[in-house]
């Protein structure tokens, strides 16, 4: 540490600048953070209320074997949570993660406060690492808040019963909870792609909206391309190809092949994007 402080003023240590906790508090005071996390609590509530309007109509939701997730949503707390995750996984969670990871550096740049942090000086790699850890932390909190609120509300309203799906036999509640945690874990890993992309854009641009929107747009583009079966095996390389692989955790025994591939894809993309972000940020001229 001594080499890092040569020439510094008394009391300055690079390793003490901008700690994770400080960054956590910086972000916690923001409306954006509070709204996003608040919505994670609100969404299960809205869904729950919406289910109260159930008139018993027999709409076909499509989607094959897994469509029944909707029909089974009210069969218990676990299924309600599963449903909530099912409807959020595609878009909502993507947006939330893109928000946390895409806004973090770009917003500091747009406020001008990034200049002053770098002049402290907070070492650039440290600044980025702290920002990344906190953004991922908030993303995880959002995911956990969503799932735990859904589980709590669902269990209070529909009771504690085994996890049901049409692709597998009933899964006992205890194991069902484990499966649910597995699904949460896979969703978290899968969202690393968005986190990586948004974070990279956040470093590349000074416009927070550009970083968040850009990440979401690219994610949607990848999802659209993934629908085009004509692309054949190229699709396996799309970052969104394995987003639905967590459904494999609902069958008995668990189908883990695609989950493993999805993890590989997510980890590889996230590492690539983050490496590019660090490479770029530690070299770029901060001119905003």
């Amino acid at each position: 540490m001594s080499t890092g402080t040569i020439g510094a003023t008394a009391g300055y240590r690079p390793g003490r600048t901008l700690t994770v906790w400080q960054e956590w508090r910086r972000q916690a005071t923001r409306r954006r953070t509070q709204f996003a996390l608040g919505f994670m609590i609100l969404l299960p509530l809205i869904v729950l209320v919406a289910f109260q309007f159930d008139t018993g109509g027999d709409d076909d939701n499509g989607g094959g074997e897994f469509a029944s997730l909707i029909d089974l949503a009210t069969s218990g707390g676990l299924n309600f949570t599963l449903f909530t995750l099912f409807v959020s996984a595609g878009f909502l969670l993507t947006v939330v993660v893109a928000l946390f990871c895409g806004d973090t550096v770009a917003s500091e740049a747009s406020w001008g406060s990034l200049r002053y942090l770098l002049a402290v000086p907070v070492p650039r790699a440290r600044l980025l690492a702290v920002k990344l850890v906190v953004a991922l932390g908030y993303s995880a909190v959002a995911l956990i808040l969503l799932a735990s609120t859904a589980l709590l509300l669902g269990t209070l309203r529909y009771g504690w019963s085994p996890l049901r799906s049409t692709v597998a036999a009933e899964i006992p509640a205890g194991e069902g909870l484990l499966r649910l945690l597995g699904i949460l874990g896979y969703l978290a890993v899968g969202l690393l792609v968005v986190a990586g992309l948004a974070f990279l854009l956040s470093v590349l641009t000074d416009a927070p909206l550009g970083a968040v929107g850009g990440a979401v747009l690219l994610f949607i583009l990848s999802s659209i391309l993934d629908q085009i079966t004509a692309l054949g095996s190229i699709r396996s390389f799309l970052p969104t190809h394995y987003t639905d692989a967590w459904l494999g955790l609902l069958s008995t025994p668990v189908q883990s092949d695609d989950i493993v591939k999805g993890c590989i894809s997510a980890v590889a993309y996230a590492t690539l994007f983050w490496s590019l972000a660090f490479w770029r940020f530690t070299r770029k001229d901060v001119v905003s």
Binding site: E65, F66, L247, G248, S251, Q255, D258
Partner: peptide, 12 residues
């Protein structure tokens, strides 16, 4: 048969 493939909905 071990179950359904979550991705292409085929059998595993």
């Amino acid at each position: 048969v071990a179950g359904f493939d979550a991705m292409d909905r085929g059998l595993v």
